[in-house]
Design a protein around this nucleic acid. Structure first.
Length: 942
DNA sequence: GATTTGCATGATCTC
DNA sequence: AGATCATGCAAATCG
């Protein structure tokens, strides 16, 4: 009779447990206990051929067919049920409960089943026992020949003493193996250690032994076909994956010790479609593991194991909270975790990258008609890894053991994140396309306990990376690998270290795919943005690839097959004679050297490399520019960069010309919504009916959706074009009319502008409006006004309206007059410029309409800021019949006035609310006439 | 009273 | 519209 070994980690007694004849695998809670420590005896590991025969292990739960060792060893004829039973494969396949087919299993070795037959309601202890049964079943896949297993496990006994009588969940959840394995290179010991825990393990059904592991299974009979399937899950390949995941087989000759291979391995952090799991549902890309081959190699260490990335998840607040529950994506749980039929689930053993084993309760909650899978008891692990919300946990599988491996990536704090992002991008010496960037910009990988390896990684990444890293250092001031390593939080001894330079308040943000989880301080986003802008300076087209010219909307774009590469930061200047010069700063002497504009410099460049100016090809050569010139040169460059960033921000805030026109048209139709502040802008407009074909409904949300080509003849584009033409026509008419008025009243500047100011600028002016999101200050008046106070054209007004953002929730038939809303804070303008453009035209307007009394109102309004617009609005009707609520025209006019105030007036300061009211009148005047004209034109055109 | 546990709800995402 | 998932909340349990 073969010896039995208590699988209690601290006991490991081999001889104190005797096999009990007649003992059944499905013990139904009557698990055999270790005589020494009282732990549940880990029977199944020792269910070798002999024992099975001897004990007369019962057969299939369904058909009663006797199972014998050969079947069990090969696992060709039976399935193990997670509630402790077995079924022969034929019954299982015919059973409606058979959900696991071997060819669907992620590792080909899972034998989880969901048969509830005969399962008793588990109590706390029952769970444990039940879990032990399952565990036994799990280990069943590792059938061993009695004598060999003893030798293999003998070492375990030596370092496992003590007792653990009481099995409590907390204890079960506590990590084990930390004593015996301090690093992942000790995978063998860790793995053996994992055998000693009363819980499930992903070692289930490991089909074959691994030569380098202590737990070798030389005697296992494995169906070659099955073996092929099981041992190489990737060979099956995801059926619908775009990119075949590449397993990293670590073995002799290709082991991690090969620095060369490290260098060769790509460092691209790209989401890999994981190996297809049990479930049929495709894993969401959000959960695709984004782990580099090199990280895989780091994790795998020197073992012969294959690390198969399965999935990853960004920790939510509740995941990382004290509650200790990690919600698992359903698809992932069902694909890669054991199948569970009861909400209580199973204890499951997961190894972290330090080699430490953790045992979590894998369970689910009924949720609607679905399930919600959670890992319970993760708090110690989370704390050990110092994970917080926003960090990412990764789940991989160690093949062929089939063991689960949990890694993590720390989410960087906003400050360091950008740095790390740069480093990540730089690590490949390239910057990727957008998709790639999105993968890079997430988190910085951390392989806990391997900071030393990370250091070696740094050293092994080649000169280009180092140079880029240094360059980034110089470019951003404080970017350094050292920070990255520190932030990794794992010193070389494998103990967690507090992440440095991480402000707490900025660490608590979730970073995920959902908008709710994408909470990021605007300030942070700005930082990232700015830094990215700076990164643009470093980008160069790939030197060896010629671009293809693509013309989009009359703009030519160079399209490269390859991603841009990092180059040295240079400055371009325009020559008076035409053409450009490029200036680069020597990394050694910091002198600026001139060179042709089309030169692509490597990240690290010194005067010695200056092949274009023989006189200045050494650091001893003087500067070409005088200090004063150099100062101006740098200042100019700084200014240009600042303007570019500002323009970029402005462009981000402004809609496209098409959007602007559409918006103008919409406003013309609806008159805007006076009651909704601009900050509440939304693209929803629930008042419209489904199927509504108005331009609001047919226009894709601003900034979203595909841009239409200039030649597009879709309904949207045709409408916009038609309206644009109408707009232009009306402008011209008004312009002519204004000229006549101007001839009569030459001192009036409000009204139609000069022809050359109007033609073709109604849209382009959108980009010229004063807006500086950086500091909220008004732009210089000379940028705002043309000459001595450029008149506001309708286009300007419309643009301002547009920039104020129209709420598409506006109701065209709105029948209430609302108070004007505070004006948008994003539209600061010069006070003086507003006075210039506002007061004079008002006079004109008043005189034209014989509303002289408004001047008094204006005066009054100056002393009464509150409710001024309303007063003005009402008094605007002086001299007219009393307002009739049934007078639709009047109501609409009033709406428009209010609407214009809400969207059109740009001044933000509260002191000039009166001025805003004046402007609103002006705007409403213009808009009313524009609207009427536009409607007329549209009507005539239709 | 604190903590754990199980469920419900609603926001968000995907099809 | 249905599925998914983060999280809130109340009941249960524990100290």
């Amino acid at each position: 009779m073969a010896s039995k070994i208590c699988m209690n980690v601290l006991c490991g007694s081999k001889s104190s447990i005797q096999w009990k004849k007649g003992w059944k695998l499905r013990s139904g809670g009557s698990a055999t206990l270790c005589d020494k420590c009282g732990s549940v005896y880990e029977q199944l590991i020792f269910c070798d051929t002999f024992h099975l025969k001897e004990t007369g292990w019962r057969g299939c739960s369904s058909c009663g067919k006797r199972l014998h060792c050969g079947c069990i060893a090969s696992k060709s004829f039976l399935e193990l049920l997670d509630d402790g039973g077995v079924e022969c494969i034929s019954c299982l396949r015919s059973s409606e409960f058979s959900y696991i087919r071997r060819d669907e299993e992620p590792n080909g070795c899972g034998t989880w089943s969901a048969d509830n037959v005969g399962e008793t309601q588990s109590t706390s202890l029952g769970n444990k026992i039940d879990g032990i049964d399952r565990e036994k079943l799990m280990y069943f896949g590792i059938s061993m020949e009695g004598d060999r297993q003893i030798n293999l496990l003998q070492s375990q006994k030596d370092d496992t003493n003590g007792s653990l009588r009481q099995i409590k969940r907390e204890q079960v959840m506590s990590p084990i193996g930390d004593v015996r394995s301090t690093g992942f290179s000790n995978l063998e010991r860790a793995f053996i250690g994992s055998l000693g825990q009363n819980c499930l393990s992903m070692t289930l059904g490991s089909p074959s032994g691994t030569p380098n592991l202590a737990l070798r299974v030389p005697g296992v009979l494995v169906d070659p076909r099955e073996q092929n399937k099981l041992a190489s899950p990737f060979q099956q390949g995801p059926k619908s994956c775009h990119v075949a995941p590449k397993p990293l087989k670590i073995g002799p000759g290709s082991g991690s010790g090969s620095e060369a291979s490290k260098d060769v391995l790509p460092q691209v952090r790209v989401a890999r479609p994981p190996v297809e799991g049990r479930g049929r549902t495709q894993l969401l890309p959000r959960y695709w593991p984004k782990i580099t081959d090199q990280e895989l190699q780091q994790i795998a260490g020197d073992s012969n194991s294959t690390i198969v990335p399965l999935f990853e998840k960004v920790l939510s607040a509740s995941d990382a909270g004290r509650i200790g529950r990690l919600v698992l994506p359903k698809a992932c749980a069902e694909a890669y975790f054991p199948r569970i039929s009861q909400p209580e689930g199973l204890p499951i053993r997961i190894q972290d990258v330090k080699g430490k084993d953790w045992v979590f309760q894998f369970r689910f909650w009924p949720n609607n008609n679905s399930r919600m899978y959670v890992l319970e008891g993760v708090t110690p692990c989370i704390q050990s890894m110092q994970l917080q919300a926003g960090d990412t946990v990764t789940f991989s599988r160690i093949d062929p053991e089939g063991k689960l491996l949990m890694g993590f990536r720390k989410a960087s704090n906003p400050v360091t994140m950008q740095q790390e992002n740069h480093i990540s991008a730089a690590s490949n010496g390239t910057l990727p396309n957008e998709n790639f960037v999105s993968g890079v910009i997430e988190n910085q990988p951390v392989v806990s306990g391997y900071s030393s390896r990370l250091r070696s990684l740094k050293g092994s990444t080649g000169p280009q990376l180092s140079a880029v890293s240094e360059h980034l250092n110089s470019a951003n001031g404080d970017i350094s690998w050292r920070k990255t390593e520190e932030h990794a939080g794992w010193p070389s001894e494998g103990l967690p270290m507090q992440p440095l330079l991480v402000p707490e308040k900025k660490r608590s943000r979730n970073i995920g795919s959902k908008s709710k989880r994408l909470l990021m301080d605007t300030e942070d986003a700005l930082e990232l943005k700015l830094t990215w802008e700076e990164a643009q300076d470093l980008l160069r087209p790939p030197p060896t690839v010629k671009p293809s010219i693509v013309k989009i909307e009359d703009h030519e774009f160079e399209e490269y097959e390859e991603p841009p590469v990092f180059g040295k930061k240079t400055i371009f200047t325009a020559r008076p004679s035409g053409g450009q010069d490029q200036w680069a700063q020597c990394d050694s002497c910091s002198r600026w050297r001139r060179m042709p504009a089309d030169v692509l410099l490597p990240p690290k460049w010194t005067c010695v490399d200056n092949a274009w100016d023989p006189e200045r090809c050494s650091c001893s050569a003087p500067d070409e520019m005088s200090p004063k010139e150099l100062d101006n040169f740098l200042r100019l460059n700084l200014d240009v960069k600042r303007r570019r960033v500002t323009a970029s921000h402005r462009q981000e805030c402004e809609p496209s010309a098409l959007d602007a026109l559409a918006t103008v048209a919409v406003l013309g139709d609806n008159g805007g919504d006076p009651g909704v502040p601009s900050v509440a802008t939304t693209t929803r407009h629930p008042r419209h009916r489904p199927g509504c074909t108005c331009i609001v409904c047919i226009q894709p949300p601003s900034g979203k959706g595909p841009k239409h080509k200039p030649t597009c003849t879709c309904n949207v584009c045709m409408t916009v074009k038609r309206r644009f033409e109408t707009l232009m026509m009306r402008k011209k008419k008004r312009q002519e009319h204004a000229v006549e008025i101007a001839q009569k009243k030459p001192n009036i500047s409000w009204g139609p502008p000069n022809k050359d100011e109007v033609e073709g600028e109604s849209v382009s002016r959108c980009k010229m409006l004063p807006l500086d999101p950086r500091d909220g200050e008004a732009r210089p008046s000379d940028e705002f006004e043309t000459g001595g106070g450029r008149s506001k054209t309708f286009a300007d007004q419309a643009t301002e309206i547009n920039m104020g953002q129209i709420d598409l929730n506006c109701d065209p038939d709105r029948d209430q007059v609302e108070l004007p809303q505070p004006r948008s804070s994003s539209m600061p303008v010069s006070m003086t410029s507003l006075v210039k453009v506002a007061t004079l035209p008002l006079d004109t307007y008043l005189k034209q309409n014989g509303l002289t009394s408004l001047t008094c109102n204006h005066q009054a309004s100056l002393s009464s800021h509150a409710a001024v617009p309303q007063e003005v609005s009402s008094r605007d009707n002086e001299g007219r019949p009393p307002p009739d609520e049934n007078d639709v025209t009047l109501v609409q006019e009033r709406e428009m006035e209010g609407g214009n105030e809400g969207h059109c007036v740009q001044d933000q300061t509260t002191d000039d609310a009166n001025l805003g009211s004046i402007q609103s009148l002006q705007a409403s005047y213009n808009l009313k006439s524009e609207k009427k004209s536009l409607d007329d034109d549209i009507g005539s055109l239709q």
